[in-house]
């Protein structure tokens, strides 16, 4: 997860933005308290969105209180401990561990030695998360193995590669729920994951081509330049994903945080793609 989806602040009510910040701070604090301090440094907005979608669909109660942030002199409003909050922080911890492990595997020589250093802190982090949610590790590992299998076989379908990652986020989003709520969250999680995977592939298209590493979009369109030329098509498919996300979210019936979720999914996703496109065009020139 890479922190692409965030709200467009200008279109939010003050109380909605304050709530978003409280969720970010709450998740950061809970991660530090229950999982590892490492999660506090790497926490990203995609997980905040996952948490908000989860509580919006499940209707889980949220408490908030003002607490002092150890990394900031100011006192901040944070959401309080709940099942979804602890679980989201744990899921982030497990994913972070596998990300660090993946980086170690991908690097060679002296760089590999340096990249192993964070593993000393990441392993206890994963163990603590797995102790809280034992089946989380197995599912995350299986999905990531499936994804790396597709990547090593130079999968030419970006949809197929994105499906492996989206399956993982679908599982994370719907963990511990059942019935209709589970189905809605599975679908919401799937499209969040698909969006994030496509965005990551799009943003790294030139870098991956330079390093000669796998990029699903390069494999599909041919060259990074052709990927850039097909930006409209990629934007359309991301828009389709977010429309599917919103349809799934809407079918949940009674839900809270409507404005915030729709702001992030509709406006935030669009803004993130446009920002990436600008950046890529600038770098290409």
């Amino acid at each position: 997860m890479f922190g692409y989806i965030r709200p467009v602040q200008g279109e939010l009510l003050v109380k909605e933005y304050e709530f978003y910040k409280a969720v970010y701070c709450g998740l950061c604090r809970e991660g530090g308290r229950r999982i590892s301090r490492l999660t506090r440094f790497f926490l990203n907005h995609d997980f905040v969105f996952l948490y908000i979608t989860r509580i919006a669909v499940t209707g889980e109660g949220v408490s908030a209180s003002v607490k002092r942030c150890p990394y900031n002199l100011k006192k901040r409003c944070m959401v309080g401990e709940s099942f979804s909050l602890t679980y989201t922080a744990a899921a982030f911890g497990v994913l972070l561990y596998y990300k660090i492990l993946d980086d170690v595997r991908d690097s060679k020589g002296i760089k590999r030695l340096f990249k192993r250093i964070p593993l000393v802190f990441a392993s206890p982090m994963k163990n603590r998360a797995v102790k809280l949610y034992p089946d989380l590790d197995k599912n995350v590992r299986e999905s990531l193995e499936k994804l790396s299998g597709l990547e090593s076989s130079d999968c030419s379908s970006p949809d197929l590669a994105a499906d492996a990652f989206a399956g993982l986020t679908s599982y994370i989003a719907s963990y511990g729920t059942e019935g209709k709520t589970k189905r809605v969250l599975e679908d919401c999680g799937y499209h969040i994951g698909r969006y994030v995977y496509y965005m990551d592939a799009f943003e790294d298209v030139f870098e991956d081509s330079y390093k000669k590493s796998f990029n699903p979009l390069c494999g599909y369109y041919g060259t990074p330049e052709l990927v850039l030329e097909s930006a409209d098509e990629i934007q359309t498919t991301l828009k389709d994903s977010m429309a599917a996300f919103l349809r799934a979210y809407e079918s949940a019936g009674d839900k809270s945080y409507d404005n915030l979720v729709k702001n992030i999914a509709f406006l935030g996703s669009k803004a993130a793609f446009e920002k990436s496109l600008e950046k890529l065009k600038g770098n290409h020139k």
């Binding site: 389709d240 429309a243 919103l246 809407e250 729709k262 509709f266 406006l267």
Partner: peptide
Amino acid sequence: NLSRAGVNMPYDV
């Protein structure tokens, strides 16, 4: 309908 979320957006976008 594919790109249309079919939901009412809370803001004028």
